[in-house]
Design a protein around this nucleic acid. Structure first.
Lengths: 197, 197
DNA sequence: ACGGTTATTAACAAGAATGTTAATAATAGT
DNA sequence: ACTATTATTAACATTCTTGTTAATAACCGT
C-alpha cells in the first residue's frame, strides 16, 4: 500500500484557513454554527488538527473574535483617516456596517458581553482608532474636542444601530426601501449642518 | 406507597414560567445558554414538559423571540407616545436600550438574520410602532413627514448602536465614563437643534 | 542523508443536547 | 362519581459536540 499523502501547512496558514471558514459559518449560521467539526469540515481540515492549533473550541472562537475585531477597527480607522468632512465619512461608516461580517461580530460581542472576560477589546484595536481620534481633535479647545468626539461617536452609533436593526425596523417607521437607502446620506447632511454651526 | 403529587399548571402559566427563565438565561449566557435542559431546570419543570408545550427546542426559541420582540416594540411605542419633544424621548430611548434584555434580543436577531425566516417582525409589533409614527406625522407635508420619520429612525438607530457597542467603544473615542453617561443628553440636544431649524 | 520536531489523521471515548415513549396524576365536563 | 383530556414525569434512545490518543507523514536543520 502506498503511503498516504498529506497536505502540511504552516501553523499560520492552517489557522488562517480555519478562521476564514469560521467567519463564513458565523455569518451564515450564527454562533451556534461555530462547532469545531463543521468549521473543520468546511476548511477541509481534520477536526483534531483544528484542536491542535487552537487548543479548544473556545480557543477557536476567541481567535476568530480577535481577528474580526481587528479587521473592524482597522476599517474604522481607515475611514476616519481618509475622509475629511462628516458627510463622506458618515456614508462610508454606514457602508461599512452594511457588511454582514462586521454586524455579526458586533452582535456576537453584545450577546456574550458581561460573562466572558476574554471578550474585551484588544489593545491594538483600541489604539488604532484612538490614535486617529487623537489626531483629528488635536489643537482644538477642550470644549470643541469633546464635541468632535461626541459627533464621531454619534455617527458610529447610528451606523451600528442601522446595521443591527435597519432592515428589521424599516417597516415600523414607514420608510420605503428607497428611502431606507437614502437614509445614510441624509444622516451625513444633518451631521454636516451640526458641524458648521 | 402514597401517590406522587404533581403541580399542574395551565398551558399559559407553564409557557410563561419557561419563557421568563429562558430570558434570564439568554441575558446571562447568550444563545448558547438556551438549552432546553437548562431552561427547564431553571424553571423547575421537567424538560419533557417543556417540549410538550413548545414542540421543540427551536419552538421554544421562537416563542422567546416573539415575546421579547413584542416587549421591545411596546416599550418603544410607549416612549414615542408619551414624550412630546425630541429631547426627552431620546433620553428615554437611550435608557430603554441600556436594558440588557432588549440589547440581547437585538443582538440575537442580528445574529440569526438571513437564514431563519421565522425571525421577521411579528405584525403586531410592526403596527404598534407604525401607528404612533403615523399619528405623530399626520398633518405634515410629505417633505416634513419624511423628515420626521428620518429623525425618529436616527434617534432609534443611535440608541441601539450605543446599547450594542457603547461600553466596548468608549475607550476608543477617548470618552470618560462620565462623558459617556452624558452622551444621550447631548444627542437629545443636537436633535432638538435639528428639529427647530 | 539523517534525526528531531510537529502538523496531520483516524479511531475512540465521554458528555451534552434533543427528542420519544409509556405511565400517571390532575383537572374539567357531564 | 365517572370519564375524557392533558399536563407531568422518568427512563430511554439518538445524535451532536468536544476532546484524547497513538500512529504517521511532512518538513527543517545539521
Amino acid at each position: 500500500m502506498p503511503p498516504k499523502t498529506r497536505q502540511r501547512r504552516t501553523p499560520d496558514e492552517a489557522r488562517e484557513l480555519i478562521l476564514v471558514a469560521a467567519q463564513v459559518r458565523l455569518s451564515a449560521y450564527g454562533v451556534r454554527g461555530l462547532t469545531i467539526k463543521d468549521v473543520a469540515a468546511d476548511s477541509d481540515i481534520n477536526h483534531g488538527t483544528l484542536l491542535h492549533h487552537f487548543g479548544s473550541a473556545e480557543g477557536m472562537r476567541n481567535a476568530l473574535l480577535a481577528r474580526m475585531t481587528n479587521s473592524l477597527t482597522e476599517d474604522m480607522s481607515r475611514i476616519l483617516k481618509e475622509n475629511p468632512g462628516p458627510e463622506s465619512s458618515i456614508e462610508a461608516l454606514f457602508d461599512l456596517m452594511s457588511s454582514t461580517g462586521h454586524i455579526k461580530l458586533l452582535a456576537w460581542r453584545a450577546m456574550e458581553e458581561g460573562r466572558n472576560n476574554q471578550f474585551d477589546m484588544p489593545d491594538a484595536s483600541i489604539e488604532s482608532v484612538a490614535n486617529i481620534i487623537e489626531r483629528i481633535t488635536s489643537g482644538l479647545s477642550d470644549h470643541d474636542q469633546l464635541r468632535a468626539r461626541n459627533m464621531v461617536f454619534l455617527a458610529v452609533s447610528a451606523a451600528v444601530g442601522w446595521g443591527i436593526c435597519g432592515t428589521g425596523f424599516q417597516q415600523m417607521f414607514g420608510l420605503s426601501p428607497a428611502q431606507q437607502e437614502e437614509f445614510p446620506r441624509w444622516v451625513g447632511q444633518q451631521m454636516a449642518k451640526l458641524a458648521t454651526q
